[in-house]
């Protein structure tokens, strides 16, 4: 069991790098303002930004449907090895929902600019819920490893 926890711990640590690359790409492309997010999708002639097509968004987003759900599943299934609390359902549900909304909002922005707010909120919600899952996981692992070493002594 100790080995399993160490594996989780290392994976969680390396996964933080993955999250940071995602945040960087989001800031570069969408940004956190209403105008910058809608510009990326709808284009801006003055800034020479081409508007995105449905096909272009689909090409970019279809791997994310698998990747995002897989990542949330992998991270939150680690919590299965600890005492399950109601909060775990809530936070995993938030991560799944925000992840889904984050992808789908790019398509909705093609219809209306107002969905830029949804994009920003869902991205922030997704990243925060991932960090919360990672925090709970690391905390639980440390508590478990400490308890095990105390019992062994």
């Amino acid at each position: 069991m100790r080995l399993l926890f160490i594996t989780f711990l290392i994976f969680s640590f390396l996964f933080i790098f993955q999250i940071f690359t995602g945040i960087y790409l989001y800031i570069e492309k969408y940004g956190f303002s209403y105008s910058s997010a809608s510009e990326y999708i709808l284009g801006n002639e003055e800034k020479f930004i081409n508007p995105k097509t449905f096909y272009g968004l689909l090409k970019l987003n279809f791997p994310h449907f698998l990747a995002i759900f897989l990542v949330v599943f992998v991270l939150s299934h680690f919590l299965y090895f600890f005492k399950i609390k109601n909060f775990y359902f809530f936070i995993a549900g938030m991560a799944f929902s925000f992840g889904f909304l984050d992808i789908i909002s790019s398509f909705l922005m093609l219809k209306s600019q107002i969905f830029s707010y949804l994009k920003i909120i869902s991205f922030l919600g997704f990243e925060i819920s991932l960090f919360v899952i990672l925090f709970i996981l690391v905390l639980n692992i440390f508590i478990k490893l400490r308890t095990q070493s105390t019992e062994n002594q």
Binding site: F15, Q18, L25, V74
Partner: peptide, 20 residues
Amino acid sequence: LLSIMESLHIELFLLLILYI
């Protein structure tokens, strides 16, 4: 940097899934 991050984002994901 954007191009590096784009490729790293995908590669790191795949490597981590392989690793775990």
